[in-house]
């Protein structure tokens, strides 16, 4: 199940675990990333909390936790090479895997059509 937030994150949800990243649109808007800071596995976040930080030459931006949950894995590859987020934001440039506290909450997120309408 692929879901989106109005904060320009995508979630690919399988068995209650969401792989989370930022959308193509967000990556384009941010420009070339030079620094990524990810949360440690085991950390829990409420929906809307600052979970990660990305920085371009120009500015720092927060990436919000899209739903309540616990981090089970962070993508160290994008820490080592932030440009992966620009080259493949909805694939190899994923940020973290989140074990959802309430998987049913995902129903409230946007589907792909609704997200595309949002950024149109």
């Amino acid at each position: 199940m692929l879901k989106f937030t109005s904060e320009h994150e995508w979630l690919k949800i399988e068995n209650g675990i969401a792989t989370v990243g930022i959308t193509n649109h967000a990556a384009e808007q941010l420009g070339d990333l030079v620094f990524v800071e990810l949360p440690a596995a085991g950390k829990s976040f409420a929906k809307g909390a600052d979970a990660a930080t990305v920085e371009s030459v120009k500015a720092a931006s927060e990436v919000y936790c899209p739903l309540d949950g616990e981090i089970v894995e962070a993508n160290e590859a994008i820490v080592a090479d932030p440009s992966l987020v620009n080259s493949d934001p909805q694939g190899a440039g994923w940020f973290f895997k989140l074990k959802l506290a309430n998987p049913a909450d995902a129903d409230s997120l946007l589907d792909e059509a609704a997200y595309k309408e949002l950024i149109a």
Partner: peptide
């Protein structure tokens, strides 16, 4: 203009 399509990093 803060940046062109090339982007800040590559412009620099």
């Amino acid at each position: 203009p803060v940046q062109y399509p090339m982007g800040v990093l590559k412009e620099h």
